[in-house]
Structure formats: structure tokens, C-alpha cells
Design a binder for these strands. Structure first.
Lengths: 150, 150
DNA sequence: TAATGTAATTGAATAATATTCAACTATTTA
DNA sequence: TAAATAGTTGAATATTATTCAATTACATTA
């Protein structure tokens, strides 16, 4: 049997979805052509970047969620953008922000468990030139990606 | 003219989208019926929670993004869950986590600008019984909701 | 290990939905 | 206020999802 779900999950994390115009038409009591016009306009203007799926991460073996504050080594301190773009490529990374305060980066990471988190963190220090890390572990994800988690 | 885009944006933040099976079929070189079957299975199992849109937040007047670490007053310290569920109801709140460390909650907030952030923060202290707040402002959102921001 | 049941794959038919188009209306601009 | 532009909408068409039934793969157990 071919297990296509991992591929599916990865593609759905950032795309391969589309608006449900008919459902919106009912909800908003507007003709579907009007909604179609307005949605395409939002897309054209670049206001909508993509359509994607949101998962119950525990159920897809990404139950461990952590927020990592990171300092860059002095070689990289000057251009956090390049480093953060590289970090952003990682499928396990939900978000990367360059932030104010004592740390330069804030990374939201989703892993299977603490072990996988630890492996990732060790690797990251080497790969991305991180000089110091401060991690917050999520004990409960009440809302994520604008979606309330049951 | 009726401006339905704000309603549209709100609905798209957490739903009213659907998978693009035909595109996936081409991408994965599998029959669309196979993908249909597998996707419905993921939905049935609750692994997929919803399908939604991701925005260029600057372009929809939600350009100011901040991470707020919060302590609850001692009356609320015992049940962070109830408070966090209430906070989660707020449309401006992208995520809420109960976290380890010196603070109980980590809130990701999207507002138009600093002014709106300040108003929200003041209100939140009153409404949710927050005794102390520590905020990190995002200077650049490199990735968000698993989507790389150009 | 053969037999039986269950889960997954798939092509063809159908149903549902998005998209296009053209006519019209509202809004903005000169 | 005329002309141009942007937004709305119903009807026609094109796409796409969904259902169905047949088939195959896999797991269970006797």
C-alpha cells in the first residue's frame, strides 16, 4: 500500500486548497458570482497568499510544540534575515519572526516529542549559527493559526 | 457598494476553504479518487481540522504583529485554560498557548498598528485578569502559519 | 496457510461547483 | 455631468468533486 498521507500533509501545510464559494454564498447571502469576483480581487491584490489546511497536530505526530528565542553568533548578528529564511525552509518550523528584545529570532517549532525537539535544537545551533537559545514549551495549544483547538 | 471583504477575511481566517484534489492528483501523480479517499479519511479521523486562507497581513491592515507573554492574577492562576479560551475568541488573536517558564500564557496578536496593540493590551489586562505582560514585537515575519512570507 | 473479512485503489458516471460572459448598476474622475 | 472605471449579477459553460461498483491489497484467525 502506498502511504501518501505524509506527502499530502506537507502539501496541505501551505497550499493545495481553494475557497468554497458556494458555502460562502449561502453564509453571506450573496450571489456566488459576486463572491467570486471579490475573492479573485483579493488574490490579485496579493492580500490572500494561499489556502491551506490546519491539523490536529497531536494526531499527525507533531504534538510537541515549542517557541524558541534565539541569539545569533556575532558573525550572523548583522543579517538575521538570511538565517531566518534558511530556518523558514524547515518543514517542522511553523513560524519565524525577527523580534525586538534580548533575542533576535522567535521560532515556533512542531516536533513529534521532546526527543525530536532536542535533536532539532542541537542541529540548529550548528547549522544556523545560534549562540544562545531560550525555549518555551507549549503545555496546551488553545488556538493556533486562528483556529481554536478543541 | 457593499464591502464584503471584511466578512470574507474573517470567515477565511479559519474556514470556508476546501482541498484542490485535481491539482494534488497532478502533483502526486495519483488518481483523484485515491486522493479523495485519503483526504476524507484524514478528515474523518480528525487529523485535518479545517481548510483556511493565509493573508499578507500588512495588506489587510493587520501589519503589527506581537507576541505577548502574560502572567495571570492569583485569582486566575489556577485555571489558565478558561481565560485562554476566552482570549482565543478574539479575532485579532492568532494563537494562544499555555506555556512553561515564568509566564503562563503566550499570545500572538495581530493589529493594525502600535496604537491598536496598546488599546488591546490595556483592555486585556482588565478583561482577562492579567497581572503582568511582556511583549515582543515582530520586526519581520519571515514565516507564518507554515507559509513563507515574501 | 487458506479462508474470510476489512481497508485501500481505481475508472466510469454523476452531481456539485467554479468560472466565464455579457448586461447592467454604482462609483469615481476629469 | 459626461465618460470611464469598478462592482454586481443571472444564465451558460467548463471544471471538479463525489459517488458507485469492481478490484486489489492487507490483516485476522481458525
Amino acid at each position: 500500500m502506498k502511504d501518501i498521507t505524509p506527502k499530502l500533509i506537507n502539501l496541505f501545510k501551505s497550499g493545495f486548497c481553494t475557497p468554497q464559494i458556494a458555502r460562502l454564498a449561502i453564509k453571506l447571502k450573496e450571489p456566488s458570482t459576486t463572491l467570486h469576483y471579490n475573492i479573485k480581487k483579493l488574490e490579485r491584490e496579493g492580500k490572500i497568499k494561499t489556502y491551506k489546511a490546519v491539523f490536529d497536530y497531536k494526531k499527525i505526530d507533531e504534538g510537541h510544540c515549542s517557541y524558541i528565542l534565539a541569539n545569533l553568533t556575532k558573525e550572523n548578528y548583522g543579517n538575521p534575515e538570511e538565517i531566518s529564511k534558511r530556518i523558514a525552509k524547515d518543514d517542522k518550523v511553523e513560524s519565524v519572526d525577527i523580534v525586538t528584545g534580548d533575542y533576535e529570532l522567535l521560532i515556533k517549532l512542531r516536533t513529534k516529542d521532546v526527543d525530536e525537539y532536542y535533536i532539532w535544537a542541537k542541529e540548529a545551533i550548528k547549522k544556523y549559527g545560534i549562540s544562545k537559545m531560550f525555549s518555551l514549551t507549549s503545555l496546551k495549544q488553545v488556538k493556533s493559526e486562528f483556529v481554536e483547538m478543541g
